[in-house]
Design a protein around this nucleic acid. Structure first.
Length: 805
DNA sequence: AGCACGCCGACT
DNA sequence: GTCGGCGTGCTC
């Protein structure tokens, strides 16, 4: 009996019908190459696609397996997934109900996602007249060109007779960056000899030889050119076999022009000492334990992380540090690079696809031991983890809002259990979920209650804007804030002004009838864009001109509610003409590196006031900031979201923490229309514990996390009635199959009732214990995914959702 | 997802 | 009669 090598492959086709392994044979010579975790190209129907090998086995050849197609080629030399990550992907797709490919894809840098290209290859000698236009004397042409020329049917006909073939190619998106290096192939004597024997007119070549007499290592082509050598003379010597040209793979270095000040471990305070001791013990004992490091802003959490990592490295293990997307400022990178130098890889959204790929490869090749990055860095392909740290653990950016809808915290726990290593969740304002777990003893609570060097927390004043209005102040700056701003300008100290833009998008309204322009396809008001001076829908991309008159009442009184940062900036200019203002928002930080540039300009004191949105709430740590102003504290408080209070408290506390972190004491002004609300009141006192108690009562009363778990089901369809009826069916199914202790809300129309002309309904499940839940959810999704194409219904599930819209 | 195959309407 | 519309089923 003949034995056949078979690989089970997950193919790169995200669809319900292909969400399983496909078996392929592969030749004996590839046994060492085709292993679980490697990417391959496989034939799939008429095309070639990428796949990931998840298992290999040897089978007896019983005709059956001879029918299998064969793997086309491997795409990697070593597996890109460790066995642990393959296992993790399987778990992830189970837990988040996503396709297996989606889970696997989420673990790789974007550069490794396959790109497909369709092309036409001509097989016979003479290209006929009617195809000249397409092929232009070459044997290959792109499919796009054929489409342009409108000759696809002709080509399909010719493909049947194999006069030509339609070929499907797999291409990698990103190539490795290579640099041309030149080195001498000959010995010194040979070079000397050539300098003498070459004809006198080859003077440049002689100079080049002279150069290589003094430098016998490789030199980059670029460097040679900088010395004034031409590619012509280099080429001549390469042809003479004296010099050699080789392509050497290099990393793109996002921090090329930056030096990181090396830092030494700082002496720990008693509190820090007490906090780090149990962590170090867990590291030493290889114990999987989750710590919640609750430390007020400026209490030195980072130093605890750094010294933990130091211990982990000493044991020859690796560390992952997660930081929230936007806060990964150079400041934080600098602290890790400064302590651990080139042992650190940085993975975050500010890097280009190529740069991320290179940083990822450093981990893959075991050239670094620490990965610092945003959410997806939790999948760093380490195989001997010693600790996982999640800084600002309450941040919502740790939850991915598209498939796979995972929370990095859950993945961290899964990996921690596998590697038997501790997890540290750090925050000045922990999420209620985490703090409740710490209270119950599921997590180990560690506290840092004092700021470094016993600096006081900034004094916070809450200003009631209703009083301001009553007193005739209609501007967005309270008298107190204006006063303090002037004071800081006089003292040459810096101010951070924070504008919570959410719920404030710039819309256009008719002042006579109150008409607001809505997107015709989505139930949303459209946003005004000053740059293009048109209206745009942020969900479907539809845009149109701003009407000159109101479409409803023909009034000419159309008003732009473009509140945002631009307007504040204008008003600042009016109030303080001498003030230098840096504005940070999506408009000014759009380009790569802009974010960083603005911040460092502010750090150098090139501006007096930094004005911005969410993005400036965290990570800022400049000594000269002594005033923080929050212009509208309550804009996010009234969002239809059970976490609105929590988010408000967290944000205000974080922002306040920006002031007075160094020698000078800080002041904070919080402007609000609801000063009596506990999340505003308590953030002013920086009293997390009190806030926690109050908010827990509310959550208990309204049956929300952490007292209940959530699962949200979305249903969408072009037809409202159809959507509602499917939602109704799903709700019935749940009522029938879930335990009576679970609460099923809905079906109701989603807060955004229509996007892209599809109506949206949702069902929210609140549950405490529901062992069969995943089974039922899977069943629901499968049932309706099955006829997605038949009837256009789309059903998706978000387990433990963060956004309920 | 893509692609091919197949079955119906409006054109040379 | 054929070109091309998109409904349906399959991909190891």
């Amino acid at each position: 009996m003949i034995q056949v090598k078979v690989a089970k492959v997950i193919v790169d086709v995200p669809a319900a019908q292909t969400d399983h392994t496909f078996s392929y044979r592969f030749p004996e010579v590839w046994v060492d190459l085709i292993v679980p975790g490697i990417r391959v190209v496989v034939p799939f129907g008429p095309r070639k696609i990428q796949g990931i090998v998840v298992e290999t086995l040897t089978e007896e050849d019983e005709n059956l397996s001879t029918k299998l197609k064969s793997i086309e080629e491997p795409l990697d030399l070593t597996p890109v997934f460790t066995p642990e990550l393959l296992q993790l992907a399987a778990w992830l797709s189970e837990e988040t109900l996503c396709f297996q490919v989606a889970a696997l894809q989420a673990m790789l840098p974007a550069a490794m996602k396959a790109k497909y290209q369709k092309k036409i290859v001509y097989n016979e000698m003479e290209i006929p007249e009617e195809l000249q236009e397409l092929f232009k004397n070459r044997k290959e042409a792109s499919w796009e060109r054929a489409m342009e020329l409108n000759i696809v049917p002709l080509l399909q006909k010719k493909a049947k007779t194999h006069e030509l073939d339609i070929v499907y190619e797999v291409k990698e998106k990103n190539r490795k960056k290579k640099v041309k290096m030149i080195r001498s192939k000959a010995g010194k004597e040979k070079l000397q000899e050539l300098i003498i024997t070459l004809p006198p007119q080859a003077s440049k070549q002689k100079e080049l030889l002279q150069f290589f007499l003094t430098r016998n290592e490789s030199v980059t082509l670029q460097e040679l050119k900088e010395y004034g050598f031409s590619s012509q003379s280099i080429r001549s010597l390469v042809e003479k076999d004296v010099l050699e040209e080789q392509s050497v793979e290099v990393y793109r270095d996002p921090f090329e022009h930056k030096t990181f000040e090396p830092t030494e471990p700082l002496p720990l305070t008693d509190e820090q000492q007490a906090a780090i001791a149990p962590i170090l013990q867990a590291v030493e004992e290889n114990k999987f334990e989750t710590f919640l490091l609750y430390g007020v802003t400026g209490s030195g959490k980072t130093e605890v992380y750094l010294q933990t990592i130091q211990e982990v490295l000493k044991q020859g293990k690796e560390a992952i540090v997660l930081v929230p997307e936007i806060s990964l400022t150079p400041q934080i990178v600098a602290r890790f690079k400064g302590r651990f130098g080139d042992q650190v890889a940085v993975l975050h959204s500010g890097l280009s696809i190529g740069e991320k790929y290179d940083e990822w490869r450093k981990i893959h090749r075991k050239e670094v031991k620490v990965a610092v990055g945003a959410r997806s860095a939790i999948f760093a392909p380490f195989d001997n983890l010693g600790v996982i740290i999640i800084d600002e653990e309450h941040e919502s950016s740790y939850k991915q809002e598209e498939n796979p809808r995972y929370h990095a915290r859950d993945v961290a726990k899964k990996r921690g259990a596998y590697h038997q290593c501790p997890i540290i969740l750090g925050s000045a304002t922990p999420s209620l979920e985490s703090f409740a777990r710490a209270q119950k003893g599921v997590y180990t609570l560690l506290q840092l209650t004092k700021r470094m060097n016993n600096r006081d927390l900034p004094s916070v004043e809450i200003v009631d804007m209703r009083n301001e209005l009553r007193d005739g102040n209609r501007s967005m700056f309270s008298k107190k804030l204006v006063e303090l701003l002037q004071d800081r300008l006089d003292k040459h100290e810096q101010t951070v002004l924070f504008l919570n833009k959410r719920g404030y998008s710039s819309f256009v309204m008719c002042r006579d009838c109150g008409y607001v322009m809505n997107c015709p396809y989505c139930d949303l008001s459209m946003t005004y864009h000053r740059a293009t001076s048109d209206m745009k829908c942020h969900y479907c991309g539809y845009h149109s001109h701003v009407p000159a008159t109101c479409p409803e009442c023909s009034s000419k009184h159309i008003r732009y509610f473009g509140t945002g940062t631009q307007k504040v900036e204008e008003e600042l200019g009016r109030l303080f003409p001498e003030a230098r203002v840096i504005r940070m928002d999506v408009d000014t930080t759009g380009r790569k590196g802009a974010h960083e540039k603005l911040l460092s300009a502010f750090e150098r004191g090139e501006a007096d006031i930094l004005l911005g949105t969410q993005m400036i709430a965290k990570g800022l740590d400049f000594p000269n900031i002594t005033l923080v102003g929050v212009l509208t504290a309550d804009t996010m408080l009234h969002l239809p979201d059970f976490r609105a209070s929590e988010r408000t408290f967290q944000l205000l506390t974080q922002v306040s923490g920006r002031a007075g972190r160094h020698d000078k004491p800080g002041e904070v002004i919080i402007q609000t229309y609801t000063p009596e609300h506990y999340s505003i009141l308590l953030s002013g006192k920086q009293d997390f514990l009190e806030f926690y108690q109050r908010e827990m009562m509310t959550r208990k009363q309204f049956q929300y996390p952490p007292f209940y778990y959530l699962a949200l089901i979305h249903i969408s369809h072009e037809d409202v009635l159809k959507t509602a009826s499917i939602a109704e069916n799903i709700s019935h199914y749940l009522q029938k199959h879930l335990s009576s202790s679970s609460i099923i809300l809905g079906p109701v129309a989603s807060p955004i009732a229509r996007i892209n002309n599809r109506y949206r309904y949702q069902c929210l499940i609140k549950y405490k214990r529901e062992p069969e839940l995943m089974y039922h959810l899977k069943k629901i999704v499968h049932q309706f995914q099955e006829d997605t194409r038949k009837n256009g219904v789309y059903v998706s599930v978000d387990v433990q959702p963060y956004v309920l819209m």
